[in-house]
Each structure stands twice: as structure tokens, then as C-alpha cells.
Amino acid sequence: MIAILIRDMRLAMRAGGGFGLGLAFFLIVVVLVPFGVGPQSAILAEIAPGILWVGALLACLLSLDRIFALDFEDGSLDLLATAPIPLEGVVAMKALAHWLTTGLPLTIAAPFLAVLLHMPQNGFVWLVITLATGTPALSFIGTFGAALTVGLKRGGLLLSLLVLPLYVPTLIFGAEALHRGMAGLDATTPLLMLAGITTGVIALLPFVAAATIRINLR
């Protein structure tokens, strides 16, 4: 199973693999917002947590259709489905690879972009904590969405339509925990809920996604 993780990471890093695209997209979204909203630092600081969370979420969404679509096109998915590794494990490893190449870099880059939005410095720790807790959920939920649309030629738009509603709770709890943490309030509840969602989807969704892929392959 480690082989799958290594292969997916390698593919993402090599030419055309899309690594860095999500990161660049995140940067551009964050840069565009002040152009739309205006340069007043008070307003930007106010909306920074939301912008950073929504930006990270969209950047995550951008690369979801790569998780299975390429493997489906070149026949690898058929071969993986008949391999001795359980398909659930394949799915979990692919989701993990997606997080390592998307969610993790986003989390690390977020504080630097937060500077552009005049986010107060005491928020940086909370920004990293909430993104690190929440982005794995985005990858695993997204993997389920990618599994649903794997057989479709132009599934990207449908994938967004299916996945975005599923992202709502993660976004709400993530941004809320960040808001509260920054304001010096007690952020335990939203943070625990966020962690709960993440652990829940990591535990359950690979099974659902694997079943979905089997349906799509037959």
C-alpha cells in the first residue's frame, strides 16, 4: 500500500502532475480578494479567516478529479481493483497522497498569505491548527466525490456540485474555530467537531468510496 502512496506522490511531483497548481490557485484567490474588496486593512483582517478557509477549500477541490480519473483512463484502476490489495486501502492511500500534495502545502503556505490579508499575528497558530485538522477531511470527502464521478468524461463540474455541499460542515467548524481562537474565545467545541469530522470521514469514507468505484467499474 505504501507503493501506491509513493507512486501517487511521485506522479503528482513530476511534470504535468499538478503539484503546485493548487498552491498557486490559493495564492491567486487570496491576492484577488483585496482587489475586489479594497485595501482597507481593517476589513481585510476581518474577513481573512473566511477567505483563507474558502480559498484552501477551492484549491483542494481543483485537484480532486485527478485522484481517479487518470487511473481510470489508462486502465490502472481496473488493475488495482483486481490486485491483492484491498480497494479500500488503495482509496485511503490515494486520499492521503492527495492531502500530502495539496492540503499539507496549503496549510504551510496559509500563514504567509495571511500576512497579505493583515491577519492579526495571534491568528497564525490557529490558522495552521484548523487547516491541519480540517484539510484531511476535505481530501477524504473529495475522494468519495471523485469515486462517484470516475466514469464520466467531463465530470469536473459535477464533482464540484456533489462535493461542495459535503464540505459545508467542515468549512463551518474550521472557520468558526479559527474565528474564536483569534478572538481569544474558547474554540474547543468547533475544533473538536472539526477533528471529529476528519476522523469520522477517514474511518468510514474509504469503504464507501471503494464500493462506489466497484459500482463504476462494472
Binding site: L148, P165, V168, I172, F173, P190, I197
Partner: peptide, 28 residues
């Protein structure tokens, strides 16, 4: 058959997330 299975799975997973969302927006 495929579309029936897929939409059913989506309906199940969606229900769980809809409930979660309901709780989340209450909180929010």
C-alpha cells in the same frame, strides 16, 4: 443500475452530511 447505485450511495452519505450541516449552522 450504475446510476441507481451511485445516487443511492450519494443520498445516504448526503443525509449524514446534511444532518451535520444542520448542527453546524445552528452552532454557527
Amino acid at each position: 443500475e450504475t446510476v441507481a447505485d451511485l445516487t443511492s450511495v450519494l443520498c445516504m452519505v448526503g443525509s449524514v452530511f446534511a444532518l451535520l450541516s444542520r448542527y453546524a449552522v445552528n452552532f454557527w
